[in-house]
Amino acid sequence: MPSNTAAVEKTEGLRLGSLRIRPGKLLLYVILGLVAVLQILPLIWLVLFSLKDNQEVFNLAPFALPADPQWSNYARVWTDGNIGLYFFNSVIVTGTAVILTVLLASLVTFAITRMQWKLNKLVLGLFMVGLMIPVHSTLIPLFSFFNTIGLMDHHLSIILTYTAFNLPLTMMILLGFYYTLPRELEEAAIMDGCSIHRMFFRIILPITAPVVATTAIINMIYNWNEFVFVNTFISSDSLKTLTVGIQNFIGQYSTDWGAIGATLVISMLPILIAFLILSNKIVEGMTSGSVKG
């Protein structure tokens, strides 16, 4: 496109833009506000759901207030079973798996995108294939594997499984960011006599903090809510995670939905908090990282 026409368009755009800046912005805020309300409704629904009895769960409109809020649902969830212990297990498993996944994925992505070696594309491909297997195909082979090496009914079995299954996804997200890092970054670091490990942990990892936080959030949510692997690999009640709380209220012929709602609310609170904290990191990390542009 010839540069003069572009310039004309730009000025026009600017003028138009400044003219309707007010109604435009207003409309934008109205839309954003509406979407925000829509997105927060599920949370309100869940809280209402957790206060209903089984009759009301089915017969009241989703957002109708329960006639007599069933706080007992929470009491039941709290007293039945070892929710404290499950919570602790969830934190251990999710925390370890998230740290392990993000660290391993960062290391591999760094090696693949920033270092020079012949097989890097092939290794990348190997990881990507890991995204493609349906979870239920892996249950029998993995059970038999963990059983053979004696890791059955042990937290390591689920931690390692979560890590392996989330590595490819985490790497793919990291990949796009690593490609955009300027080469000068490493050159400068090496000029300064920085070792490669120091460069990775001191420069690369901090500068990718926003995307690391992003992948950490995604990993955290996946691991926290996962139950198929937990049920398959863990038998001892003392090792199970919060998702068994939901199981506890599913009966042979009927299900206690209110209590399940209460379990869902209780188990969502910790990740909500973790999410809000990590979410700030996406922005914070960037402002500190953008010093080097």
């Binding site: 391993l104 994925a105 290391l107 591999v108 760094f110 090696a111 693949i112 920033r114 270092m115 020079q116 070696w117 290794v123 190997l126 990881f127 294939v129 890991g130 297997i133 195909s137 892996t138 082979p141 993995l142 594997f145 390692l160 499984t161 890590t163 392996a164 299954f165 590595l167 490819p168 490493e186 090496i190 490669i196 490990h197 990775f200």
Partner: peptide
């Protein structure tokens, strides 16, 4: 940036994990 030992150190743990837990299945 092409130190083989570093590359191995950075990639092998993860590779080992997915080879056993994903490729075997």
């Amino acid at each position: 940036m092409s130190d083989k030992r570093v590359i191995a150190l950075y990639t092998l743990p993860a590779l080992l994990l997915i080879l056993t837990l994903i490729y075997v299945p």
